[in-house]
């Protein structure tokens, strides 16, 4: 397992880890908006930039990389808050703020880096989407791949096919769950869940009666031979705890 130095602290991390994971393990505070443990990194938001140095390089030769997708290797030296790292993050945040001038998460992060208002031209009719791609990646990972980015450049946006209620969506809500800014809206009324303009019937937990799963998701999972948990998450936890308690203290 490689040992790397993060801001002067040596940490040993698992083989195949990326620098961001190692840095957070070492206690460094690195912002990242497009990162999630459940999906592969894509380095879209550029906020997690750090300076790296490798054995064999000139002593003053550092390189700026996105830590979320730079793999660790033995002897790597990482600085997470050099002046140029901070400046690069400021530029990225300034640009994000131009795209999403009213989004609380972006505003808060920008303020942490000393930016109150963007120095660029604000996007007209802005929404809260920063195009981090977490929603589309998690949807691919779950399986349906019901949404994706459409068009490119300044016109690029996350949307279902033909901008209509997505036929492949199972209403699992994972996209809304991972969305860092709350751009993806999901509404529930106890009987139905509506997301991406599509309304789903909810199944109820037989134990507590809470609506916890869409029928579409249960059927989708059953159709793939995946076990469909008949209890909601909190009842499942309680049951597990009860089972554990009934077994008594392990020796």
């Amino acid at each position: 397992m490689p040992t790397v130095t993060i801001d002067g602290r040596r940490v040993t991390v698992r083989e195949g880890a990326y620098v961001l994971e190692a840095a957070r393990l070492a206690g460094a505070r690195i912002p990242a908006l497009c990162h999630h443990e459940a999906v592969e990194p894509i380095g879209a938001c550029r906020l997690c930039v750090v300076d790296i140095w490798k054995p064999g390089w000139d002593a003053d030769s550092f390189r700026l990389v996105a830590s979320c997708l730079y793999p660790v290797e033995e002897g790597l030296v990482v600085h997470t808050a050099t002046p140029r790292v901070m400046e690069t993050r400021r530029v990225a945040l300034d640009l994000l703020l131009a795209r999403c001038p009213e989004t609380p998460l972006v505003r808060d992060l920008a303020r942490e880096y000393g930016i109150e208002e963007t120095t660029y031209r604000k996007r007209e009719n802005p929404d809260d989407c920063i195009l981090c791609g977490l929603c589309t990646r998690i949807c691919d990972k779950v399986g349906p791949a019901a949404i994706s980015t459409q068009s490119r450049g300044v016109l690029r946006e996350v949307a279902p096919p033909f901008f209509e209620a997505p036929p492949d969506c199972i209403g699992c809500g994972a996209c809304a769950e991972v969305c860092p800014t709350g751009h993806i809206k999901v509404t529930e009324d106890g009987f139905t869940r509506t997301i991406w303009g599509k309304t789903f019937e909810m199944l109820r937990c037989p134990s507590c009666g809470r609506a916890y799963l869409t029928r579409a998701q249960a059927e989708w999972m059953a159709g793939r031979g995946m076990p469909v948990e008949p209890l909601c998450d909190s009842c499942k936890r309680r049951r597990t705890a009860e089972v554990a308690a009934s077994l008594g203290r392990p020796r």
């Binding site: 019901a146 096919p161 492949d168």
Partner: peptide, 12 residues
């Protein structure tokens, strides 16, 4: 191929 991905490529 998921329809969403086909549309993504078609609009790109």
């Amino acid at each position: 191929v998921p329809l969403a991905r086909v549309c993504s490529v078609a609009t790109f």
